[in-house]
Design a binder for these strands. Structure first.
Lengths: 340, 340
DNA sequence: CTGAAAGCGCTTACAG
DNA sequence: CTGAAAGCGCTTACAG
């Protein structure tokens, strides 16, 4: 059942039927009713493809995976994607996943893919990320989740990673900690780099030279959280506090602390960044975890909104948002143990 | 730059240019070369939309979220999705995410979405799932990850959930355990239901009446793993072994056991189902976890292949696969403690 | 308020 | 080996 057939049966022109179905005001009340009824009865559904061709819009928003480790959708990205998908589903558009390989220099973005898309969401930019440049060259509207140093003329939504980790570090310094470790995400990624800067800035402000042995970075897995913590504890001079860039790292970190017989919040304080993932919650840990937090899912829905607006021709420069992270004090952060 | 313009510049017909670009054999060698060169030089990229309209294919594979808790992409589904996306990316097709609401009876599948899709992947079917029926009515080719009871005439790929959990239970029975708990996924979902059956069957075969107080079900979160285990330990007659339907549940389960001062593999044995998610690995746990395992990512790539084949008109009845799960014995499963 | 017609940018029988 | 033309199924000035 297509438009031609439907209008033939109704004895109306395609024009009128199309206008009736699309809610134009200049269609007779009675006519509209007849058309809508017939469409329902005959189970007519317009072809999206034809619609898109006629409208000059593809009706899809593309989403690029985080740059590094690009082949797996990690839980953080999954939650972000949920937010994006939920918001886009409220419209007539689709979300298309555009996997990109991590090999630098190799055709990261199949240009043909970009033709199927009205706007693109770039997730997890790396410090030397060239995807934004490619997109600009291809003149595809895009918005970045995160941002690079100079945040060069594109739309972005980022959280204040530097500020969040600076404040977390300050909080620990205020509690008397001096050896504060940071278990970070892949340092090639922009967010991890900023978090490191926040940590360094807070230490430097108190005249402490950051000990780079206390900074670990890589994939944010439970395994890494565990291994890095175990290694830090084995070193000659162990940290009294550990900041984790994700709840998953924190899980592994806490496991290592418990295995070492150390009390969390007593012997070693822990602060974790909480992206608001529903399946691991800081408040149900034991002890409850002090966190910096920001909903990555909400970021997804907002970014989807921005992408949709860009697809509609909005100016990218109108969307440059930095969200603050919230600090929540719970039991896992306590005073530095005395006598160290 | 479109086909019309490109062919005008080349002084050729659209027909010839199109055929040259699409690798038809009946184009002059010299002509093909000229066309390809010009296309590159002028950065010509065909419109996917127009292509799709002409070909009568949408060039996209849709994927439906797991039925329950449909709004969030949980880590298991994310890993599955990674496999799907990776495989589909090798073709010219796109993956479109089609979120469905969990409210039963409400327009779960916006029919208009199904028009944008050549084939659909249904993930996480529920026992009373009506999406398959909808898809059959709409005559959209689809493949299900999982299956329902009667596996009614559709393509599916499932793992042997019943067998895996039966064998896990048997293994524990062989070690002398009698009170074996099962921390399960949402029992409304087909996979959880089958796992429960496997557990019951193994117990029944040894003349043990399944104690339904030892069966817990719901979202597979760390929090639930912890809370359920804590509750089981608080009961008058605690289990000596616990089977977890996912590594995330196992994480919470082990945390509760450690908090209770119980040794894993000694006081209480643990077996977990491992979907092969890269960020939580059973072999790096302490002790290493005994598992039933099957790569959910591999299932994703295979399911994508099936969906692609169905889009090409393959017969759905040719794809009915049940994959076995592998059992790996590690340290978390030991003999039942004596004197209980 | 309604319709005839052109156009979106491709593919592909069909003819030469 | 190449081209003129129809067709995919919509939308939308434009005319009446």
């Amino acid at each position: 059942m297509n438009l031609k057939e439907l209008s033939r049966r109704l004895g109306l022109s395609q024009t009128t039927v199309s206008r009736a179905l699309n809610g134009y005001s200049d269609v007779g009340e009675e006519t509209r009713r007849r058309v809508e009824e017939a469409a329902r009865a005959l189970d007519y559904r317009p072809s999206n493809t034809a619609r898109r061709l006629a409208l000059g819009r593809t009706g899809t928003v593309g989403i690029l995976f985080p740059f590094v480790g690009g082949l797996s959708i990690d839980p953080h990205f999954a939650e972000f994607l949920s937010g994006v998908a939920e918001r886009v589903a409220e419209t007539d558009s689709d979300v298309a996943i555009i996997p990109t390989r991590a090999q630098p220099g190799r055709e990261l973005l199949r240009p043909s893919r970009l033709r199927s898309v009205d706007a693109v969401i770039v997730s997890g930019p790396a410090l030397d990320d060239d995807r934004m440049a490619s997109l600009q060259r291809a003149r595809v509207p895009f918005v970045v989740h995160g941002r690079l140093r100079g945040d060069e003329g594109y739309a972005f939504l980022d959280i204040d990673n530097e500020g969040a980790f600076r404040r977390a570090t300050e909080l620990l310094l205020d509690l008397g900690h001096r050896r504060i470790a940071l278990l970070n995400g892949d340092i090639a990624l922009a967010f991890a780099s900023r978090r490191k800067e926040g940590w360094e800035a807070a230490l430097a402000a108190r005249g402490i030279v950051p000990d780079h042995g206390l900074h670990r970075e890589g994939t944010m897995s439970e395994e890494h959280g565990h291994a890095w913590t175990a290694a830090l504890l084995a070193a000659e001079s162990r940290p009294t506090a550990i900041i984790c860039s994700s709840m998953i790292l924190a899980l592994g970190c806490c496991r290592a602390l418990r295995e070492a017989g150390l009390s969390i919040g007593g012997d070693v304080s822990v602060i974790a960044h909480d992206d608001g993932m529903p399946f691991i919650k800081p408040q149900t840990m034991n002890p409850a975890l002090t966190t910096t937090s920001s909903s990555i899912r909400l970021a997804g829905t907002r970014i989807a909104e921005i992408a949709l607006a860009l697809a509609d021709g909005a100016d990218a420069m109108g969307f440059r948002e930095v969200w603050p992270a919230e600090i929540t004090f719970r039991d896992s952060a306590g005073p530095a143990p005395v006598g160290l």
